[in-house]
Design a protein around this nucleic acid. Structure first.
Lengths: 348, 348
DNA sequence: GGACCCTATTAGATCGATCTAAATCGCAGC
DNA sequence: GCTGCGATTTAGATCGATCTAATAGGGTCC
């Protein structure tokens, strides 16, 4: 059979029905596993499908039924391992539901995000999991409601009216501060980077509150470069302003980077200076010294987001639900008692 | 307007046409940016689209035209940063083409892969970028040709009949071996893990050939655990059999893990023992000691794969093309002259 | 004025499924 | 035999776009 004939000879439900000696409607009921069809009829149709090599045509089905079995996922970035793990959790749950993930990358800009959300809608996705780009206005929510499209916010939230899955960043920050304060640290810096969004604000807020609660000054928030490769070089400048004995990092990418930068300066992390990461990605356990980190379990958050979305697709009128996972402190080698942390002055 | 009315009042091309006082066909030409329509007609239609809030319905379009503007991407794993970077490259190019990525994860098993490929086909993707699961039989190619679906292999190849984008793994291995041999190393191990596939074979072959070419014994190939967290613990056992002065790693994940494990044993990487990674992911530059690594540029490979696929969709009869990117050696701190590598015996 | 051509527009069929509402088949009950 | 009923099955309209082939509207040229 020549190649160009293949498309023509594409098998349709009508072909299957004819071969099985039933109507198109009955064949349709079989593919949808309806309990209405009789056992031997079903068998005959299934035999015909197999014999002809029938392929279900989602596109056609979607046109009639308002269902595409596809969900859109908008992430701001893919190279950060954190988002890759999130995506992994989402994909697993969506896949198990027999659906498929339409992935787009906003690059953390609202303009791209706008275009992409529109694109997803044109593709007829049944719903969207959105990790909103920094600077996303709350106004977008009205648009989404107008679109009548189920949306779940993940990691970052912009509106209380939409479902949300994330971690309790503020509480996580408190755990980090308390851990270091318990170790006797008083000069604690907070190293941040990246765009500003709800998860950013929450961490800042958590840091601030926890520090105050401990009677410590919380004004030592320092920005490091966004490009991973540049972070080690920031270690030096970081100490020119203040002289912290401990540093809490916005995420593990920063922690790993500063860990390298500090060791370049001849400082021993976990002795001269303490370091606490955030997210507890796999890398935290295989860097040396092992990184103390607050886990936020991205894979689990991904799974939660996907489940929220599936529920909402099934039942659009559900009140908004927020799943906020507690974080957990994993103490490893990078944090130690403040008494030991004197060597920092060598850095000057 | 009550919520349930929204779906009913969905704006179609017919609505747009009526408002603009033209036919449905003309309106269709406008959305497709056909040069056939007159300037002021086009303007009128566009105005109508904006006024009514028209949303293009891909599903309907796809049914008629045989085009979905979606491509499937099958990866064996998402948590490995290497695949995340690959995906990032793919997504960027596909997005730029105005298309969308349907992402699925085979978990590196052929059974899942089979189900997922079928699923992608049902969703009517215009083509597939496949990083084949280990153990994929070449027989799948005939099936793909029968399906008449454009497919590009990436990172791993199973058939010369399909397009392929990847790196020259064998040459990369030769660079690694030559680099270490030039430094005077003779006892060189190769630490591997993961499933066996073409990229695995090529690296083994490259290692073997390069070692022989240097007159060295190439039988020291050691498997380490697949789970990232377990790799450091494997460092000890790795030396119980042989006493290498240098280790080449199958990828950077292993390199980072062994780097940690060796330092746990009190060995100084880059002094007592040399370590060379593979892939040169971002982490290679921010671990300490900095990791010597062979770059394979996953983002670029992703871009290449996507471009190959777009070309093939446009022109299905093209002969198969293979884009094999050269690798590059990045010398950093983890590799040093063999003369220094004596301390290894401390490990016993 | 009529043939001819080029551009712009359109009516109507069509893609492959699902939905609605109605038809058909057995069979029990009277 | 007729009615009624539950269990199956089906004809035909329909979703919202695209495609084909035909048509309308000028303008040019002899």
């Amino acid at each position: 059979m020549p190649v160009e004939d293949r498309k023509k000879s594409r098998v349709t439900l009508l072909d299957v029905a004819q071969r099985a000696g039933v109507s198109r409607a009955t064949a349709s009921l079989v593919v949808r596993k309806s309990p209405l069809v009789g056992a031997q009829t079903r068998a005959r149709v299934e035999e015909a499908m197999a014999a002809l090599g029938y392929v279900y045509n989602m596109g056609a089905a979607r046109l009639r039924a308002e269902r595409s079995n596809a969900v859109g996922v908008v992430v701001p970035n893919l190279t950060n391992p954190f988002f890759a793990e999130l995506l992994s959790g989402i994909e697993a749950v969506i896949d198990r539901a027999g659906m498929v993930v339409l992935l787009v990358n906003s690059g953390d800009t609202v303009e791209r995000q706008d275009v992409l959300m529109r694109r997803l809608r044109e593709h007829g996705v049944d719903g969207i999991i959105l990790c909103a780009a920094a600077g996303t206005q709350a106004g977008i929510v009205q648009q989404l409601l107008d679109w009548d499209l189920p949306v779940v916010q993940t990691l970052r939230h912009i509106s209380p009216e939409l479902d949300y899955a994330g971690a309790d960043y503020a509480a996580g920050m408190r755990q980090a501060v308390d851990h270091l304060a318990d170790l006797g640290h008083t000069a604690i810096s907070f190293a941040v980077h990246g765009p500003v969004h709800s998860a950013y604000d929450e961490r800042i807020k958590g840091f601030d509150e926890a520090m105050r609660a401990r009677g410590l000054k919380s004004d030592d928030v320092i920005r490091v470069p966004d490009q991973t490769a540049q972070i080690p070089h920031a270690a030096k400048a970081l100490f020119e302003a203040s002289r912290p004995t401990a540093i809490i990092c916005f995420n593990d990418v920063i922690a790993v980077g500063l860990n390298a930068g500090l060791s370049d300066l001849g400082l021993k992390v976990g002795e001269d200076v303490s370091l606490v990461g955030f997210d507890d990605v796999t890398e935290a356990d295989i860097t040396r010294p092992r990184l103390t980190s607050i886990s936020t379990e991205p894979v689990t958050i991904g799974e939660d987001s996907a489940r929220l979305l599936l529920d909402r697709i099934r039942e659009p009128q559900l009140p908004p639900r927020w799943i906020i996972k507690p974080t957990q402190l994993h103490v490893r080698q990078s944090s130690a008692a403040a008494a030991l942390s004197l060597g920092i002055h060598k850095a000057g």
